[in-house]
Amino acid sequence: MTKIKVEVLDRRQFMLAASATTAALMAGISSANATAEMAAEYIKKLTGGASMMEGKVKIDLPEIAENGNTVPVKVSVDSPMTADNYVKTLHLVSEGNPGPEMASFHFTPASGRANAAARMRLAKTQNVVGIAEMSDGKIYTAKTLVKVTIGGCGG
């Protein structure tokens, strides 16, 4: 008969084991979220891989979101919004939500301004990327970091 070796964990070891397991679980959860790479892939799909320029796009988010369920976002693109020079679409892309797609706003010269405001769910602290497709085919981009409060005591 083989002897069974019984190991007794003391409290400290137990806690280490427990936190390691939790860490592994958390890693598992976060990998289900979009990453910068997933966002980039989605952007490629949206733009057909066309090259992008920094600028013109402004993504306005609170520096710290009190709750990720309802985060106000304002977007604007610098454009004269005339019949031959306007913003066609502005896509919002998430680098930290379960999926990268958030919303796409389609403008026309009759919009007057390429401005829009909405409220978004943000799963965690992340970059929100704006991609503007202009009427002349050029693409501009910008990103904004938003810190999302988790834990604490929101009740």
Partner: peptide
């Protein structure tokens, strides 16, 4: 739309909060 013509539209995904709010502009003619 204004007088039947679309001047703004949006595609929403699962990231849009409950009770969606949307603000945008229009050039009055």
């Amino acid at each position: 739309k204004f007088n039947g013509e679309t001047f703004f539209s949006a595609d929403w995904h699962g990231s849009v909060s409950a009770n969606p709010y949307m603000s945008f502009s229009y050039k009055a003619e």
